[in-house]
Amino acid sequence: MAAGAVESLTSSPFELIKLRAQQTSKYDWCHTRLPLDDMSGSGRPPSVYDVRRPSQVISLDGCGALWRGLRSGIARDSIFGGVFFSTWQFLHQVILDWKAVEMDPPPRYDEEIGPLSPLAVSLAAGFSGSVVAAASHSFDTAKSRSQCTVLPKFIAMERKLLKWKIPGKRFEKLAGIHPADRNLLFGAIWLRMARSGIASFMIVGSYYLSVSYLVSSN
């Protein structure tokens, strides 16, 4: 989980630039916000479509904008890393125990069971990837929504001087979830589950097949 937090801290600027570079319309969904996010008398901020390059983001929003949505990103990546490997290890042990049932005499240690097939390990990894994608999807959505919000430096300073309070419940504030996004947190969750599951299956399967090929060739 600590590795997930470090990953989020490192990759957050790249995610923001990638997400904003993908904006091709001034009327993109990222620009839509409910009244809870209305600005004060300082005026309406520009569209996210107009603030896509790193120089534009730093000039208008400040350097801190590169890590916008960091709290939800840390929650997402920490959950992803912790749940993925714990679920994968659990399924790996279940498959080992299932294989040991058919052995006579019963093995005393896992090493006596022998290696599992690459297909079984890959399927376990794919299932784990889908599970962890579902568990972390709401935080991923919150991070993406936050990165699509343009908050100029002068508005951020004004909010600080006026002691503007972040809206939402305590958990939402802690996780970086905007209350206006509550109905959007689980949108397209099946697509992310499919993507994560297929990617995990392919990566682990390719690794095991490569290792098996190298071992057999020697």
Rank of each mutant, 00 (worst) to 15 (best):
F154V: 12
L161R: 14
D140K: 01
A156V: 07
S196V: 07
C148S: 12
G187L: 01
I177L: 02
D140E: 00
I189N: 00
K163R: 14
M193N: 05
R195K: 10
L161Y: 10
F171V: 14
H178P: 00
L174E: 10
L191A: 12
K163C: 04
K169M: 06
T141P: 08
E172G: 07
K165W: 02
S146I: 00
R159T: 08
R195V: 08
D140M: 07
A156M: 08
W190V: 09
R170M: 09
A188T: 02
R192C: 04
L185Q: 04
N183V: 06
H178C: 06
I166D: 09
I155E: 15
G176K: 02
A180H: 02
S144T: 11
N183L: 10
C148Q: 06
E158Q: 13
T149I: 15
E172I: 02
K169Y: 03
T141H: 11
A180T: 09
R182P: 01
L151C: 10
L185P: 03
A194H: 09
R192P: 01
G168M: 04
A180E: 14
F186K: 07
S196N: 15
I177T: 00
L151S: 14
L191W: 13
A194K: 10
L184V: 05
S196Y: 13
A175D: 07
G187Y: 01
K143C: 09
L151R: 15
Q147V: 00
D140Q: 07
A175L: 10
A142N: 08
E172D: 13
A188F: 07
T149V: 15
L161P: 05
H178K: 06
I155V: 12
A194T: 15
A142Y: 05
R182N: 15
D181E: 13
K163S: 11
L174T: 11
F186D: 06
I189K: 02
R195M: 08
A194Y: 12
W190P: 02
R159Q: 13
K153D: 10
R170C: 02
L161V: 11
K173D: 05
R192S: 08
E172T: 04
K143A: 11
F186E: 06
A142L: 05
I189T: 08
I198R: 04
L184S: 10
G187M: 02
G197M: 03
Q147I: 01
I198W: 05
M193L: 04
K160M: 05
E158V: 02
R170E: 08
M157E: 15
G197H: 05
L151F: 14
S146W: 01
S144Y: 09
L174W: 14
C148G: 15
R182E: 15
F186H: 10
M193F: 00
D181V: 06
G187I: 00
D140I: 03
K153Q: 14
L162W: 09
F154N: 13
A142F: 05
I189W: 09
A180I: 03
F171S: 14
V150T: 09
N183K: 13
V150P: 01
R195H: 09
R145H: 10
S196R: 13
S146Q: 10
L174M: 13
C148R: 05
F154M: 11
R192D: 09
R195C: 06
G176V: 00
F171G: 04
I177M: 00
G168Y: 01
P179I: 00
C148H: 03
P179M: 03
